[in-house]
Design a protein around this nucleic acid. Sequence first.
DNA 1: TCTGGGGTCCTAGGACCC
DNA 2: TCTGGGGTCCTAGGACCC
Length: 422
Amino acid sequence: MKTFGLIDCNSFYVSCEKIFNPYLKDKACVVLSNNDGAVVARDAGSKALKIKMGQPFFEIKDLVDRGLVIPCSSNYALYQDISNRVVKVIQSFVPFYEIYSIDECFVDLTGIKESELESLCKEIQKKILKDVGMPVGIGVGRTKTLAKLNNWASKNWKDKTGGVVVLIDMERQNKLLTFAEVNEIWGIGNRTTEKLKHLKITKAKHLADFDKQTLRKHFNVNIERTARELQGTVCFSLSEGPEPKKNIASTRMFGERIKELEPLRQAVATYAARAAVKLRREGQLTSCLQVFIQTSRFDSLPYSRTALVPLEAPTDDTRELIAAAQAGLTGIYRQGFAYAKAGILLSQFIDKKGYVPDLFAKPERRNTDKLMSLIDYVNRTQGTGTIRFAAEPENAGWGMKREFLSPAYTTKWSDLLKVRTT
DNA sequence: TCTGGGGTCCTAGGACCC
DNA sequence: TCTGGGGTCCTAGGACCC
């Protein structure tokens, strides 16, 4: 029998901001998306103010102006660093874990006595809070789906549970399943919840008990697996070590609308360069690049096109990707629209190790690796943007708006927190 | 005026093959 | 009037996740 745990940071982005800014501690606080467009993270205080996930900033601006809620622009460098620190603590307790997202981590607790699980979890929780300053909730169950649901319970009944819910005994687990709505289950979204209603499935327990054949026929194999997991049968196992990515995207809304081709060419080049860095970090070559541009989906006259640019040979060379992106853009750009967003998608990867170049490959490719790894090295150690391609502008008018940005407390010497002693 | 970004997996259907 | 069967591969679109 297996035992899984899920460790999940509470209001992760907001908690990161609060670690370094004690002023925020007792305030209601939200973190905004790129361009300060919408709310992407809320703490208990902002939830109490009925601020919703994804709510546009202008709708809560009034609350901000009245000082009832403090906004922060998103600061991903900070969040990633805090995330790494949390994982480090987890590592020191558990050898087998899966980093599921920036704020969640599955752990394999198989073999630990049922009577000891709760105290172990409390200890992990305490240590993460003490060493990193991050509050977490922990759910433990017989499958990943159950661990996730128990984690939800740990947050939903935080006061009663202290943020730790361990359910190994299936009778007790089933009690929770009769309480929990079906849309609280991992893998069951809005659409599926609506469809399940027609089958009179509204609680987690209904789904667990439902005929698996019928589920598979009406939905798909994953819904069937989810239902089995609710009964305690392991269908999803821990995947250790990150799988190689199958797609890489780099997309952004612009800080302001763009009408002309030239700034679009710059934007697309900038995103292509960013995607290329991710690609090289993965050790992959791409054979296909997609570039898209779109107006706002709220526009009365929307326009959205994607160009698919096959590459002559698999590559991770920024120069080739920029050229491909701009060539694709030329084909889809139409005058007369106010573009709000553009992006690059890379797909169809080949592992770089073991790739044998085509007999007819262009000879200049030979310089690629040295040049690219030098650029990556300089940018990694001296700061992003130290070396740019000419196609990428230094300061673009359409660049990101981040009005409420916190300092890079942990990743930039100049932003280090200062402590004054008097 | 102002509405996120980056992923994964599954399925249906078309193209193509023998 | 009649019009194979079975297989693979690829893509677009849908649904989900954080």
